[in-house]
Design a protein around this nucleic acid. Structure first.
Lengths: 227, 227
DNA sequence: TTATGATTAAAACGAACGTATGAATCATAA
DNA sequence: TTATGATTCATACGTTCGTTTTAATCATAA
């Protein structure tokens, strides 16, 4: 009994992941999903209850592992540091590198899930917001604290903003890997697509670190940045 | 006759802009739009032909000015430079600063349009891709060339990627101004919302320039970065 | 082999979608 | 004042949406 069920559930999750990535939540119909998964229309409601619950399960399947892994890696880094601050580059790699390396692991959703995640963060449907907030809260707080410790001379508000900017650059780097081409018609010359992912990680990492450690902004107005 | 028409068209465009921003293209219905605009359901099809055409017009109304302004500013910068390369910081400010300062100009869409633009770039519906590509092509090429000249020691492929990353960070900075709060539950402490926008521009600019001028990545593999 | 609970299947539900139609209403020029 | 073209209006069309229902089919344990 177990076998059929798992296959059906997984096929639905895979189809949902791919279609939500390509057309968004609202732009994807149950009939598209069940058709692509080769299951009956009623199967989604039977196994997941509703379209919204399916969407949540699509995320949970990947995010649970991702955020556990992020916690685990940061645990290791902090243990190695023996109470000293962890290097910013190591923190950034633990958070964003772990995410990006999912793209190469087809068993963990690969590029498809990363692009879904990237686009979802800019179009948070009301119901998915609470879910993502809950799913992300703990790991975000841990990394925020680690960055505060790693960069004691940078105001906390600035670090929070820069984490925010880093998330944006990363989401685009993924979600837009071929979307941006359609906007700009740019060719990333001389690179086949296998090369591209391998090189994306160091490229993005350089950019993120450059931004994180950039000169602090000068506010034209009077008020100095509050500690 | 002219007056009623213009008002109706503008009210529809305003409502569409706000609702597309909040719920996305697929997530917004004609009935929501016409209801918010206080016009008859048939008014959209009468004035714009279809929902897709309305979406295009929502963008055109703002992008035409934005991209002309970007061109104009770069013209001025290059004229002042007398054939010398323009400073990277000036190029970045001309492109992204011009965009960000739209947020403060309610007559040009303000924050609403910027957030719509930000989220649309990660969810490019098939039909909007060709439109945005056409609308953006010329100005993108101009700025790309300016950056090549400004950073002759950086490989062109790297500059293209970093422009890409900067777009992402910027889109998030805008689209996520309150979306990210919902993901991370962060409070940007000690700042009222009027302060926030004034400070966002220098903050983001510092980050973008730090990323643009960051140390070049070291690729672990053999092949050196191609010219 | 038969009984049982899990899963799949086919069909239909009411609601909401984008769009089209034709009559009513408006502003303007003759 | 009346004729005309632009605009607004109420209404309906045909589809598609997510979900539900009821029956058929399957796998397993007694």
């Amino acid at each position: 009994m177990e076998n059929r069920t798992v296959d059906t559930r997984e096929r639905i999750l895979d189809a949902g992941e791919r279609l939500f990535m390509a057309h968004g939540y609202e732009g994807t119909s149950m009939r598209q999903i069940t058709s692509e998964a080769c299951v009956n229309l009623a199967a989604v409601n039977y196994h997941f209850g509703s379209k919204e619950s399916l969407m949540q399960e699509v995320f949970r399947r990947r995010l649970d592992w991702l955020n556990e892994e992020r916690m685990r890696v940061l645990d290791v880094l902090e243990a190695e540091a023996n109470g000293e601050p962890v290097k910013p580059s190591a923190i950034v790699d633990a958070f964003f590198g772990t995410l990006l390396r999912m793209a190469g692991d087809e068993n963990r959703g690969g590029m498809t899930f990363l692009r879904l995640l990237g686009r979802t963060l800019t179009e948070p449907s009301e119901f998915i917001r609470a879910f993502l907030a809950h799913e992300y809260k703990t790991v975000m707080d841990r990394y925020k604290e680690a960055l505060f410790k790693a960069l004691p001379e940078v105001p906390k508000a600035e670090i929070v903003w820069r984490f925010h900017f880093m998330l944006g650059a990363t989401s685009y780097a993924i979600a837009g890997t071929d979307a941006l081409r359609l906007v700009t018609d740019w060719q990333i010359e001389d690179e086949d697509s296998t090369d591209r992912l391998d090189r994306l990680v160091p490229r993005l990492m350089s950019f993120l670190l450059g931004g994180l450690r950039a000169q602090l902004p000068q506010f034209s107005d009077a008020a100095v940045d509050s500690k």
